[in-house]
Design a binder for these strands. Structure first.
Lengths: 334, 334
DNA sequence: CTTGATACG
DNA sequence: CGTAGCAAG
């Protein structure tokens, strides 16, 4: 079932391989001009698709270019923004408007009430926010152009479901469940490893319950690097939150346990790619040194794999968060 | 005994009146070039008097010019820096090196241990730090080119002297006491007014005890605007910390009570000047609107007034703190 | 509005 | 290193 397409190793420069892909350079007027001031026509009825510019206080690139979305596909994006308010000041909107996903989920918004003007509310009619009790922590959000059948907050299989309400939102669509998730961090010196393993048990139970009904997309910051290939320094991190034996085993059990399998889609399409990560610590100049972790995923029920067209990491888009966005392309209606 | 010299009303532009004063433009090589990179002679034996440059993240002027210090005088400077670490990033050193006081006292350093490279330690052999128990609050420091006879921390006359140790340092010199002080704030909604009045009683007692032995210079952020003329909006602040009837009365009692008098030197030299303040809140764009308070003083025992040559407010020097520095010139040896 | 300490990552 | 919320001014 594997059909690796293209690798996006960091050594590959845009100029080299990108010719193979159908691209829309954002500065070309393929649809509309990109970084245009809303000065021209104040109130014409054409939709304003003015794209935000990139602030100066960020290392995020001033230009982003992504492959065009093929006809008949749905584009999902997932991004741990590490504080939505800060991210907004560092190019959040520029990414979102350039990517233009059908469904976007965010983790670590660190807000405790809904914010406005995050996305174009005419496009994303469905906007769902989840908050932690403790202010400034966790928080997930989903923005969807497609109205779901139902929405659920929290992890109902957890012994203390209320403690999970700011970390997980599920959207039900006719053909699948979409589970956007910010899995707890095991903490410095693994002080919260037990709570995390408790979460993992509940998580697996929940995913299997959903999977028994419809196939599942499980996405977000799953806060674990699966294998040695999924982080730059496996040797020195076996006792670090996110790469302990326990966390990796739990993840492995969900993916490849005795029951229905789940597929780490990015790894499926890039089975041997090293050096592509979704998270670079702000500390130690980790990004400059290329010392990262792959903690963010689009995991899907195995039977959904047929519909997965592409699973990518937006490595270029670093600077508005310590994580980069992920994108999944799925064919046929949801 | 009053001998008003010059007013520094804000309307007066430097170009107008400054001609009267003997000036050293910092950019003129009256002594040494000012904003010079230490690139020329790496290790010549002449003292490096390279003056720090002004960072860009501040509204502090890139050029400062002060009257030259007359022969046979001692220059005292006092500055509430509102966080020494932040001030250092916004031009603190540029001011200090341009001013070049003999004795400098700081309030609200907000540090809890001595810092280095604050002043030229070859010049200022005497460096005294005082800290609060609570980190990030209060803190005073004195840097002196002249070695004192003795140094005292805290307000010994206070019922709880230990609570005062991070707010007051006294240097004894042969001819006077120098008391550098950060008087407590009465707090939002005057929640700590009683503690402040308790401080005031102890303060008066302490000053009179010292004054019985030698004349006193009492300086720093005394956290009270004496009269209506000493703040921009007296009408709306009669219940605001720093301008309550109680605080003003206590200050008045120290200055003009039945016992020995103390003189507010700046007001002495500028008896009718309005609109010159030592503090502008960061809130409400107070500086732009000129809405300030005169909270910082050089107060002296009346019998010391003969020796006071000048008492000034460095209004230009705003941006490295929400307070501006004060300067006092005193003639004859300390 | 701005600082600094804090918890968390 | 960076975010957010906090207490204080």
């Amino acid at each position: 079932a594997k059909r690796p397409k293209k690798s996006n190793d960091p050594e590959q420069q845009p100029s080299k391989e990108k010719g193979k892909q159908k691209e829309i350079k954002v500065e070309e007027p393929a649809k509309k001009p990109v970084t245009r001031k809303t000065s021209k026509a104040k109130k014409d009825n054409e939709e304003s698709t003015a794209i935000s510019t990139v602030p100066t206080n960020t290392t995020m690139p001033k230009q982003l270019s992504f492959p065009a979305k093929p006809e008949g596909t749905t584009k999902f994006a997932s991004w741990n923004v590490s504080g939505l308010k800060a991210s907004l000041k560092k190019g959040f909107k520029f990414y979102v408007e350039t990517e233009d996903p059908d469904i976007l989920c965010l983790q670590e918004t660190k807000v405790n009430e809904p914010m406005h003007d995050i996305v174009d509310e005419r496009k994303y009619k469905c906007r769902e926010w989840a908050f932690e009790d403790k202010k400034g922590y966790g928080g997930v959000a989903i923005f969807s152009k497609i109205e779901p059948v139902s929405k659920t907050h929290g992890l109902p299989t957890h012994p203390k479901p209320d403690t999970t309400k700011g970390r997980i939102i599920t959207l039900e669509f006719p053909t699948l469940y979409y589970v956007a998730c910010y899995v707890p961090n095991a903490g410095d010196k693994l002080v919260r490893l037990n709570e995390k393993l408790e979460w993992n048990r509940a998580m697996e139970k929940y995913l299997r319950e959903l999977d028994a009904k419809k196939p599942v997309i499980w996405t977000g910051d799953l806060n674990v690097a699966h294998k040695e290939i999924d982080l730059a320094k496996p040797e020195t991190n076996s006792k670090t939150a996110g790469f302990t034996r326990e966390e990796r085993q739990d993840f492995e059990k969900i993916l490849n346990g005795d029951e229905n399998k789940f597929i780490d889609t990015w790894r499926h399409f890039h089975p041997d790619t090293k050096g592509v990560y979704t998270y670079y610590s702000y500390r130690f100049q980790a990004r400059t040194k290329g010392i990262g972790w792959r903690l963010d995923y689009h995991v899907v029920s195995e039977r959904l794999l047929d519909r997965v067209v592409e699973s990518e990491t937006r490595s270029e888009c670093w600077g508005a968060s310590d994580h980069v966005p992920l994108v999944l392309l799925l064919k046929d209606d949801l």
